Simulated assay, not measured.
Amino acid sequence: MLAQPSVITRIDEAALETHPFDHVYLRDLFPASLYRELLRNLPERRHFHELSHEDARRPDGSSARLRFYLYPEQLWRLPAEQRRLWQPLSKLLMSRELQDAFKRKFRNALESRFGRGIDQIHLYPVPIVVRDLPGYRIGIHSDVVRKAITVQFYLPEDDAQQHIGTIFHEGRSGEAAQRTTRMPFLPASGYAFPVQAHASWHSAATVAEADGERRSIMLTYYVQNRPKWWLARRIDRLRSALGFHSSN
């Protein structure tokens, strides 16, 4: 079963890097035996839906990014053995304990952005299993202001895909965009950063046919300091449960 404290401990112990912006790179997030089970029990492709995004569109019009929301109501669509594995992970990803660990780690950046203590910063976690198909890419961007923290847990079979990890940039254009730091796409690893407008620039290079699928868990913490944003997350979750999916 999932050892929740070990994941939180990894976050607490991770070094806070400040270049090119605040972030952490995380290793050994899951026990090896559990990690192999998760890979063997990834939801089948029929449970995923396409992300409608210009950068993800392939020449045939289909999307190169597929998503499956790890909400409890979605997990009931999976076979019993898969639910047994993914329900504890879903619980962790949506837990207050995990959110608080990331808030502690990025306290300075979050308090500076929102002008209040982290206890007064309200967030909503959205966990998603992602399958990036060959042809997927996304240009340099800093994430929308509705997001507070971006997290990605990598799910490769081995270290052969380490070169397709997310790329951090010092800027969006010019020489600054060429100065980069890559988060290696390694088993049971990942990264997290607080979203900072005009600062948290990042991208993903094109996934080549030879790379195969780029699988991961995206965990996005959305800002909840406006009534319409609070409502939007609940409506999106309801729509997802009913089979309708947003493009965010």
Rank of each mutant, 00 (worst) to 15 (best):
Q87V: 09
I8Q: 09
R46H: 11
P31A: 12
K147C: 02
E50M: 12
A177Q: 07
R67V: 11
L242E: 04
I217C: 05
G174D: 06
H245R: 09
R84I: 01
L39G: 07
A192Q: 05
S203R: 10
G115P: 05
P134H: 05
S112H: 13
A204Q: 14
L98F: 05
L70K: 03
V207T: 14
D12P: 00
A64T: 12
W229Q: 12
A188Q: 06
L238M: 11
I118Q: 11
L51A: 12
S6R: 15
Q224H: 07
T150S: 15
K103A: 04
R104S: 10
D28S: 15
L2D: 05
P88I: 03
P59I: 08
P194C: 04
L42T: 13
Y25E: 09
G212N: 06
H198E: 12
Y222M: 08
L85S: 05
T166R: 00
F68D: 06
K228G: 02
A14L: 12
A176R: 15
H198T: 07
P194Y: 04
S33L: 13
G212M: 09
R57H: 01
T220C: 09
A177F: 04
R214M: 02
S63G: 07
R182C: 08
D28K: 15
E81M: 02
T180V: 15
I140A: 00
S189R: 03
L93S: 06
A188I: 03
D158W: 08
A188H: 01
R237F: 00
F68A: 04
A3Y: 13
R36A: 14
A14D: 00
A197C: 04
V144P: 00
R172E: 15
L242P: 05
T220F: 08
M1Q: 08
T150E: 10
F102Q: 04
R10D: 04
D22E: 14
H169L: 06
R233A: 11
A32Q: 10
I140T: 13
E157I: 11
E50K: 13
L219Y: 03
D119F: 11
T181N: 01
I138V: 10
Q161F: 06
F168I: 00
R239Y: 08
V7T: 06
A192I: 02
T180I: 15
R27V: 05
H53E: 12
K105M: 06
L51S: 11
E157V: 13
A208Y: 00
R96Q: 14
A15V: 11
L133D: 01
Q162F: 01
P187H: 04
S112Q: 12
G139S: 13
R67C: 08
Q74W: 00
P72M: 11
G165V: 08
Y124R: 10
A176Q: 12
R215M: 09
Y71L: 14
Y25Q: 09
M218E: 11
R96K: 14
S63P: 08
P59V: 11
